[in-house]
Design a protein around this nucleic acid. Sequence first.
DNA 1: ACAAAAGTGTTGCGCATACACCCATGT
DNA 2: ACATGGGTGTATGCGCAACACTTTTGT
Lengths: 287, 287
Amino acid sequence: MSLNETYNQLYSERRNIKNPSVTVDNVILRFTNKSSENYRKLAEKKLQVCLIKREYEPFEDNYAVPGMFIDLELPLGSSAKKCVQEKTGLTNFYYEQLYTFGDEQRDPRSRVLSVAYLILTNNEEEISSGKWFDIDIKMDEIVLKETEQGYIQTQNVKINLINDDVVLENEIQVNFEKKNQEEIKQVKIINSTLAFDHIKILYFALERLKNKIEYTDVIFNLLPKNFTLTELKLCFEAILQEKLLDANFRRKIKSKVIPVEAFVTEKGHRPSRLFTHNISWKLNNLE
Amino acid sequence: MSLNETYNQLYSERRNIKNPSVTVDNVILRFTNKSSENYRKLAEKKLQVCLIKREYEPFEDNYAVPGMFIDLELPLGSSAKKCVQEKTGLTNFYYEQLYTFGDEQRDPRSRVLSVAYLILTNNEEEISSGKWFDIDIKMDEIVLKETEQGYIQTQNVKINLINDDVVLENEIQVNFEKKNQEEIKQVKIINSTLAFDHIKILYFALERLKNKIEYTDVIFNLLPKNFTLTELKLCFEAILQEKLLDANFRRKIKSKVIPVEAFVTEKGHRPSRLFTHNISWKLNNLE
DNA sequence: ACAAAAGTGTTGCGCATACACCCATGT
DNA sequence: ACATGGGTGTATGCGCAACACTTTTGT
């Protein structure tokens, strides 16, 4: 192909419109399953996110959520799945589209949109690259300022990501402004050790998860096939960031699980019955 | 700039990655406010969507939701706002990101992603171009098929869009498959008279709206400043597609509205008190 | 024996549902 | 007078919060 022909082709492609680059970025979450030190104490349940250290500019050596430029031959969701499989080796996971991030300055190179996906997996599979970081959240008090046409809520949120000695500190500010018709929710990054706006993407993922576990079954994607009710409760508590009352939790969750003829023993206390996800609880609740 | 320089610039831009085109597509909704024929009957409340007839290929002469290629100089949301303002002339509206549609074949020209936005407005402003179409939904029964690892739910949905004599008929099939870990929600277009996959985008918008009115204030963006409780109830019913009980509705909604010292009279029945949105009901409900 | 978790029972409150009933108005 | 929507009251039942209590195991 001559220079001229190539030029023409290239030019015609972008005659009218400049196209942005588009990536998929995947927030992959799971629960820890540390074995307990005390022979009868319960293992701690903590949410973890998979991060990979970047090898190239921009943000070289910073940790980032696994992502890649989209494959134009695939539907969007499949690009996300492919990315997760290639970068981490995971094969079995839940995924859903989270949000599309498109601030002008989110990538220093050029205009890059990021279609973020929320990925949930349990800890039965190991990952081929990347590390799991414990998620540690500290929320400040919500500060309220009333304005003439509404109000502004401001909240600072510190998110520490911990893998052994490595502690990645991040702080964001969540602003919710109510002003006449408009409702503006804005997440500002105060400081972050993650690449790009990935701390913001992570925050969106955590919020989505928090909202969804109340009225969906997604949480079971974070658990092994069989689990005890206390394990399940600890998972709820880790996501919701609050303590639940045991008796009430058991009643509430009953329709979503099925007891299995198996117990966890040798724990220094009464054996725990194992349960599994009642995949069709929604159906039975329709009438 | 010489041919060579331009070539280099163009080429370097796409050295590694082919970029897709990206549009914003805006589902703009409002309520009708037909005046009633009968002197004491209530005016009907119906959801309407703004559609514009396409002037060019592809889908020339088909109706479409207002959209445009994104402006690389603006954040995504601002591209959407700009699009709505330029195409319809609306200045005052609520907007939120809906979903990003990225099937390979959704645009016959080339790979085009669509970041869809949900826009809500009341009928105080007129639009400069485009027409309002009444939304008429008929949902078939949900068909359930149990499978080995879960189940599949299938539902056909007919969406007719009506503007005077013009009736745009559309039918989609909503599949929800539960299969082990995976939950796959798929919307297939069976037949549509709208451009691209816009009927699918409209369906997503209606679902989002339905879910959101329960736990947010978005519905007030569809209403004028002052309204009667029965008007408000009719709006809820139109979105939820079900009848509500009057007494209970009034109790439930009480905290979200503030009575105004004004009444609607000359209606052949007891005057209706007007209410306005209590912009800070959430705050008072925090404790 | 006792620590720790597993699991059940009870009580009271609040809220949603369903329905009955009265009020005010224009024609 | 009456149709129509505006608006209030109340009984019933369910679900959830709170808390007390019993059971079962390993060391």
